[in-house]
């Protein structure tokens, strides 16, 4: 089975924004993603243990160009006022045509 190189985009955001983020990812053309519950703290301060249930971590495999589109979106609409971080890492996947 041949593996091709793609990118893994990981976004951690406060859980209240999960629906909005998934919708935005969908509009950018990303159809597959995985969500896990997360908690933690960010460099800017507090935001842990609210009644709202902490954070979610959203991961998706995508091509690098789509990744840059998403980063632009995060930069405009998420980073300024919400607790949100994102990072890109390399990933080797099978069935590369899906991403």
């Amino acid at each position: 089975m041949e593996l091709v190189e793609r990118k893994l985009l990981t976004i951690v955001v406060e859980s209240a924004l999960e629906s909005r983020l998934i919708t935005d990812l969908g509009e950018a053309g990303i159809r597959g993603y995985t969500v896990t519950t997360a908690r933690g703290a960010g460099v800017r301060g507090q935001r842990e243990g609210d009644l709202q249930g902490g954070n979610v971590k959203v991961e998706c495999v995508l091509g690098e160009d789509v990744a840059h589109t998403i980063f632009d979106l995060l930069h405009r609409q998420y980073f300024p006022h919400y607790a949100c971080v994102a990072w890109l890492s390399p990933a080797m996947v099978a069935r590369g045509e899906n991403y």
Partner: peptide, 15 residues
């Protein structure tokens, strides 16, 4: 209210 406010008023501080 906090959920509605967080979505509608991102500049408001939960703190």
């Amino acid at each position: 209210a906090p959920t509605a406010v967080r979505l509608a008023l991102p500049e408001a501080s939960p703190g």
